[in-house]
Design a protein around this nucleic acid. Structure first.
Lengths: 341, 341
DNA sequence: TTGAAAGCGCTACCAT
DNA sequence: ATGGTAGCGCTTTCAA
């Protein structure tokens, strides 16, 4: 059995309380006593039982992170950003993936709450706040930050990017590169998917471009769906000469479909992704994309959450938007303008 | 304040114990009582406090996962495999990254242990078992499974692949493709790095090939180090005509360096990676690599860990090796043999 | 500066 | 079938 405070106390002939205070560098305890306690603790290999401490102290030093998919590099980068901020303060991260399933998501959040995590960071699969979602988070006034995907009717903290602007930047870039028939492989109907689609439409509108409604298809967020959706697009007449993809994995699926059809990127079809995941410049065709500061989203959401946790009084909700940045690479470079670097 | 068992008990005029048993579907409690308790619990929005349960029940339903780098897709895939197995049983995962730093690794493991996680899955940054590492894990007889990287002098559970064989397969494949001057961008000096290096040397030996010692360089595990190490290799005379890389990220860095030098892959230099991460067939040059069943490593390690946790008596350590599989793609295909699919 | 008392919310064990 | 007692290992509150 591991050493407990009680053991140290008895061993030293002092009270349990003195040990507790000494170990936590509490103010009122004699220097000499503290030294003795610490030394004996070390000798006995004492490690505090964090479960007991959590129960008594109402603090678990645990942050819950809920993402749709562990394997998507975007969320891995976010997770790294979070860890960077919270780990030095002694927090650890409980990670859960929902698989884009709102029921699982709810179940995981509920479990996290039952564990008394000190706060939650959530990239939600839900397009709008469900009754149960609000009840869960607001009802027990949990500290939480939504990231990446906004949830309609939830007005807590949020950190992400303006998805509308991402879509707009990407699409306008394609237009500037001389594309006239621009398709969109859209994502799921969450804020990110809807926002990027809207930005795409807005850019087309601004430049007076019309496209057939069949030019907007998809609904997935992984390479496989990008591949099959692009195959559909390739059947259309006239064929698109540019495509803006929901995210980089979808774009890489699209690239594969295009190349397999024997077409050239960007000459026949220019491609722009979204997310700027770490390997996107190493793809078959180096991918133009919109950077969305994934790492910073992680860091920033963690900072906000920590502030909420530390604060005695409830803090007003923050909404932070990082500016999306166009990153031009080969997949969209039709005009020989100097590439933005 | 959230509802407690006590509240339900008082409300219903039964004892706390009856509530506790009823809620956990304990055998001896009247059907009628169970129904009443459950209903009232639902009405009051009761959720068990898992911290209290953990403290009293000596089970946290938490698994600790320690990896060198969250962002490496290999570990993301492993994590997904683990989650798949443990999540249906009510476990959640506390994830930590060590950044390839043994001190941080030790600190995180210590913290995990203090949290009383039910078990640990560790891809260690340590080449050999340090005194403190063994003391930590064995001393408190924690349940743990080492994955991917073996640790010398630790004879607990292990799940991974034969790294020697990975290196051998990759290198022999390059030889069969007609490469005569095969270099190796090696990884860090942990079991995986050393094993793959050894397999590389063994293949060269078997086929009577000699290479300059300068042909083996590197030491990193990320794209950046692959890039710069490859640039060095390109200066050598004679230049290598094949290169086996520690992992896929390193390989993708190498590919970039080779292409930037104006050379052709695989004609001038053939490249083989290791790991078969999910995007490796979408790289600049589709990457030949060695599949190491990352997802299955996750699943298998989780199964072993769960068995240890559930078992009353200590189980004998298991050592599981998945067979490495050569995956041939463009980056190494010089001879027109039909690609292995 | 030190310590005793009273919990945190739950479960194991043993009695009824 | 039901409930009382005794913790789990720690912290907070207050008294000495």
């Amino acid at each position: 059995m591991p050493t407990r405070m009680k053991d140290i106390a008895e061993d030293l002939g002092v009270s349990l309380m003195t040990v507790s205070k000494a170990l936590r560098n509490h103010s009122d305890v004699a220097e000499e006593t503290r030294r003795r306690v610490n030394q004996r603790a070390r000798e006995l290999g004492y490690e505090p039982n964090l479960i007991a401490r959590s129960l008594a102290g109402h603090r678990s030093f645990l942050i819950g992170l809920v993402v749709p998919d562990l394997m998507h590099s975007f969320f891995a980068e976010v997770a790294k950003g979070i860890e960077n901020k919270v780990s030095p303060l002694g927090y650890q991260i409980v990670i859960c993936s929902s698989g884009e399933n709102t029921e699982i998501e709810l179940r995981e959040i509920k479990l996290l709450l039952a564990r008394k995590v000190d706060g939650l960071i959530i990239a939600s699969a839900a397009p709008r706040a469900s009754h149960s979602m609000v009840e869960l988070l607001e009802g027990r006034n949990a500290h939480y930050v939504l990231i990446d995907r906004e949830v309609l009717h939830m007005k807590g903290n949020y950190v992400g990017v303006k998805d509308d602007k991402m879509g707009f930047l990407a699409t306008e870039h394609l237009i500037e590169q001389g594309c006239a028939r621009i398709a969109h492989l859209r994502g799921p109907l969450v804020s990110t998917g809807k926002g990027r689609l809207h930005g795409y439409q807005r850019a087309l509108g601004k430049h007076g471009l019309k496209v057939p409604s069949a030019y907007v298809i998809g609904g997935g967020y992984q390479g496989g769906t990008g591949y099959s959706a692009m195959q559909h697009l390739l059947q259309l007449k006239p064929r698109p000469d540019g495509v803006f993809c929901y995210n980089d994995p979808v774009a890489s699926g699209a690239i594969r479909a295009i190349l397999e059809a024997g077409l050239d990127i960007p000459r026949d079809i220019a491609v722009v992704g979204a997310g700027d995941v770490h390997y996107s410049d190493m793809l078959r065709v180096p991918l133009s994309t919109i950077n969305q500061s994934s790492f910073q989203i992680g860091e920033s959401s963690a900072e906000i959450l920590l502030a909420c946790i530390e604060s005695k009084t409830p803090l007003p909700p923050k909404r932070i938007f990082f500016p999306p940045r166009l990153v031009v690479r080969e997949s969209s470079l039709r005009r020989k303008a100097p590439p933005a670097r």
